[in-house]
Amino acid sequence: MNEWIIETKGLSKRYKGRYAVSNLNLKIAKGDIYGFLGPNGAGKTTTIRMLLGLIKPSNGSVHIFGKALNKERLSILRRVGSLVEYPSYYGHLSATDNLEAIRRIIEAPKARIAEVLSIVGLSKEARRPVKGFSLGMKQRLGIASALLGNPELLLLDEPTNGLDPSGILEIRELIKQMPKQHGITVLISSHLLSEVELTAGTVGIIRQGELVFQDTIANLHQQAQGSMSLVVSDPEQAHITLRQHGIEAVHRGNTLLLEQTSDHTVARIVRTLVERKHDIYRVEEKRKTLEELFLQIVGEGTQL
């Protein structure tokens, strides 16, 4: 059974002996929103260009909709909408004509142009030449172009680049709707975790061309789980007491660090210690934010 919409095996791209992308094994399920994360220059755009056949991989393979990209590129691209790196546009044409230039090639129905313009909120600007557009508006036009052919898969490379906060929110909502309303699978790349944290179901984190994390966002949250620190009057004794009750803690200075943070466990620990006449000065939860975890994952290995 092969239900991956995108599956890459050992995907690599080498430029002059240096790997821009190396041994990438992406797996993206149908109807998922996949957040493709990594710092600038980590190989996100290179990967997306390989997924679209704009550049040829040095090694490895790409399968989209279960078909090999190098054999059935055109029939795959017919079902894919994309926005790569920065939006493409013809400055001397209006937004409508820009979409018409694409529509003539993909043979979408004419009415679809007005539809996608209203989806991205450009209906009022449709008649203006695109060269006068702000970066945010060009970005919206790029997203409109990607949606024009009613794709089953959307590849969006940093789609909220250059958008103002309300624009970012709008696009985020729009992307969230895709799988629910139309069953579209979305791959969205970003260098900010916060960008995809609220939309993505799965994240892949790429660092220096290598995939260092690929799992559901829920599991990433799991990893980001914090710890409890207890400051008590007699930490040494308290440590022994807890161990007798089968609770593992780490003793550091006058603090005890606990991995378990469920309400039930914390309550039990506090009750036990109070019953044994320990004074408890502080009970603190130390939560690692996803952002911290992301930075930690991304930062590993980059320090000299």
Partner: peptide, 15 residues
Amino acid sequence: YEHAGGGWKQLLTLP
């Protein structure tokens, strides 16, 4: 136009 506005990229991601 293709050079100026990234059109090559867009055209070649079409079928």
